[in-house]
Design a protein around this nucleic acid. Structure first.
Length: 438
RNA sequence: GGAGAUAUGGCACAAUCUGGUACUGCAACGGACUCGAAAUCCGUCGAGCCAAGUUUACUUGGUGUGCGGGUUCAAAUCCCGCUAUCUCCUCCA
């Protein structure tokens, strides 16, 4: 949520920054008009309430002193005032809700660093990384050999990814991992969690169903309600679209002791997404599923340290790819390509040799105080004043996409898969063989 | 799922039956005593949120007794609904 005081004080600047984030011109103007109406009503109703409080005190005093007559007179006078207050309160309530609704759907403002642009063509590459030693693989398969297969073909040929039965049981965009496939997935997320723990993140296991209030605090609701799965009945719960929701809300409505900041947590969870609006995109393979595993990192930080921590968190995600020896690059997202709550985002994209292109495998964002404000997550600064924490979130990494990247980058001409060195202790062997993929 | 109990400042609690400035203690903060500290004494102390005014820190008003409603001139107190916690029963991994 944006700070209404900032919007009031800097309407022109705020309007331009909102336009950069894809908000229509005029939306802010309407909001500020209603906000001004709101304050007019507050002034009026508070005057009346102050009067009522005074008279009520007098009534109490009269009754104590036994002056029943003047008390009765005052009570009769106050009846009308009570009705007025009630009517104004109702009106104020209506305006309040109206203003709250308008501000709830405004995205976060972008940090000054962020490239301005309407879509992903304005993103800017920050750096590129390739392993020195490809374990005997042709370098990034930049000249694509004829035998090179897409990850889903390898997976199906080896019998370790079963998309067909996934579709039978749950529909499109679901799958079964079988044997070595399931084990590889487990090796990957165990490796990731261990790495993050070494960097000081506390491992958390979270609920996967959360209230609408939680979805509001992290910014999924009310604007993106169609993207989530919800349970029937009261209260309706939402399946988390990312562990970020469960991790950030962990400390909702709390004041975090300053000395605990930055507070770093990590969690493995399935992520459930309707993928509304992605029909026909990435229909094959592990790239875009309704349910996928992801290891997520979240940080709660003080305001002045959040950008430094954003760089560090990005490095923590990159560290995983470097140890897995997978080529990637880091890009800074433009104002038009960032998510709703982000003030600045780096995407990490990993090389898929069969597609001959980079695909997103991690997204690391600083939301500044956007979520802290929505979810009332605070800390006391050195002056003892309450401040909203800054929150950061990043995939570290999407597990399914990592498995896909390993299958494509580590495939051999005979159809077998070499297991990346760092995963071998987790996986239990060095290879997935063609004839023995269990 | 059924029954009962509980929810009040940072903490512990009183006021709830019988509506009328939310008690007290601890902690915290300021001061006195002291070379200094402890003890003692005096004083302050409802966090937060909203608004107005002076301008950066205050002042005033509103709100604030788990949450949401209702009754009333007035609600911690009466009425309705909800949530969480505890106990018992039931069920279960």
């Amino acid at each position: 949520m944006l700070d209404i005081k900032y919007l009031r004080a800097n309407p022109t600047e705020a309007n331009q920054r909102l336009i950069d984030r894809g908000v229509e011109d005029g939306v802010l103007e309407k909001l500020l008009e209603d906000d001004s109406k709101r304050r007019d009503v507050i002034v009026r109703v508070e005057e009346l309430k102050a009067k009522r409080n005074k008279v009520t005190e007098q009534i109490a005093a009269s009754k104590r002193s036994g002056d029943v007559q003047s008390a009765d007179q005052a009570i009769a006078d106050m009846q009308k005032l009570g009705d007025e207050i009630k009517a104004l309160d109702e009106k104020l309530n209506e305006i309040d809700n109206n203003v709250a609704k308008q501000i709830a759907v405004l995205p976060n403002l972008a940090h000054a660093d962020v490239p301005i642009g309407v879509d992903d063509t304005f993103n800017v590459e920050q750096r590129k990384w390739e392993p020195e030693n490809y374990n005997g693989r042709p370098q990034a398969f930049q000249e694509k050999p004829e035998w090179l297969k897409a990850h889903y073909e390898i997976g199906e040929d080896l019998g370790i990814l079963d998309f067909e039965r996934g579709a039978k049981v749950s529909g499109a965009r679901f799958l079964y991992y079988v044997g070595a496939g399931a084990r590889l997935e487990r090796a990957v997320y165990n490796f990731m969690l261990d790495e993050h723990q070494k960097e000081g993140y506390t491992e958390i296991l979270t609920p996967y169903l959360v209230t609408h209030e939680s979805m509001y605090a992290t910014g999924q609701y009310p604007k993106f309600e169609d993207d989530a799965y919800q349970t029937k009945g009261e209260p309706s719960l939402s399946l988390i679209p990312t562990a970020e929701v469960a991790l950030v809300n962990w400390r909702r409505d709390e004041v975090i002791p300053e000395e605990q900041l930055p507070l770093k947590v990590t969690a493995l969870s399935p992520a459930f997404r309707q993928e509304a609006g992605a029909a026909g995109k990435d229909t094959r393979g592990l790239i875009r599923l309704h349910q996928f595993n992801k290891v997520e990192m979240v940080k709660f930080t003080k305001a002045e340290q959040s950008y430094e921590e954003l760089e560090l968190m990005t490095k923590d995600a990159e560290n995983i790819l470097q140890k897995l020896e997978l080529p990637y690059h880091v890009i800074a997202l433009s104002t038009g390509d960032m998510g709703f709550g982000a003030a600045k985002t780096y995407d990490i994209e990993v090389w898929f040799p069969e597609q001959q292109r980079y695909r997103e495998i991690s997204s690391v964002s600083n939301d500044e105080d956007f979520q802290g404000r929505r979810g009332h997550i605070q800390y006391r600064d050195e002056n003892g004043k309450l401040q909203f924490v800054h929150t950061l979130n990043g995939s570290g990494l999407a597990v399914g996409r990592t498995v896909a990247a390993i299958l494509e980058n580590y495939q051999n001409e005979d159809g077998s898969i070499t297991i990346p060195k760092v995963l071998q202790p987790y996986f239990g062997s060095e290879k997935i063989d063609v004839n023995n993929a269990k």
